[in-house]
Simulated scan of single mutants.
Amino acid sequence: MSKLKYLNICAGAMGITAAFIGGTILIKGTNEASVKSFLAGSCLTLGGIGIASASLYQFKVESDIEKILSERRKAMPKACRGCRNFHGIKYQGVMLVCAIHPGGIDGDTCPDFEKFN
């Protein structure tokens, strides 16, 4: 897992914690009829929920992107990995590997391989 994913999980956990603390302050402020406690609790609760949901949503998006990229890497022919000519998009169900070898090659090495920089 990348550092960014860990940061999003930590931010989400902090947001949830802030929401719980804000909820406690909010309930206590309502019982004591203190406007300051009520406002502080409301802001902390809403802010915590916002931070938690944004962070956890970002974590989900990154996980989905990583899954898609992993599946795409697995579908890529071994000889094409790292080649700048690789296209790899399906058109009406047929994958165009590259313009030089539209259907791909049979072996493990390509004579037209150009390293992608």
Rank of each mutant, 00 (worst) to 15 (best):
M1G: 13
K3L: 15
K3A: 12
K3T: 14
L4K: 13
L4V: 06
K5P: 01
K5M: 14
Y6R: 14
L7W: 11
L7H: 08
N8L: 06
C10K: 04
G12T: 01
G12A: 05
A13N: 00
A13H: 00
M14N: 07
G15K: 04
T17C: 06
A18H: 04
A19T: 04
A19W: 00
F20M: 10
I21E: 10
I25F: 10
I25R: 05
G29K: 08
G29P: 02
T30D: 15
N31K: 14
N31P: 02
A33E: 14
S34P: 05
K36A: 15
K36N: 11
K36R: 14
S37E: 15
S37K: 09
G41M: 03
S42F: 14
L44I: 00
L44T: 08
T45N: 10
G47S: 10
I49C: 12
I49K: 00
G50Q: 01
G50V: 12
G50F: 15
A52W: 04
S53Q: 11
S53V: 09
S55R: 04
L56M: 02
L56S: 09
Q58C: 09
F59T: 09
E62H: 05
S63V: 12
S63F: 10
D64I: 02
I65K: 15
E66A: 11
I68S: 15
S70I: 06
E71Q: 12
E71F: 03
R72M: 08
R72L: 14
K74I: 13
K74A: 09
A75H: 08
A75N: 13
P77W: 03
K78D: 11
A79T: 05
C80Q: 12
R81K: 09
G82W: 07
C83E: 00
N85H: 07
G88L: 03
K90C: 14
K90V: 13
G93C: 03
V94P: 02
M95Y: 08
V97E: 10
A99K: 04
H101P: 13
P102F: 02
P102K: 01
P102Y: 01
G103E: 10
G104C: 05
I105S: 05
I105T: 07
I105W: 11
G107S: 08
G107C: 02
G107Q: 05
D108P: 03
D108T: 03
C110F: 06
P111H: 05
D112C: 10
F113R: 01
E114W: 02
K115Y: 06
K115E: 06
F116T: 07
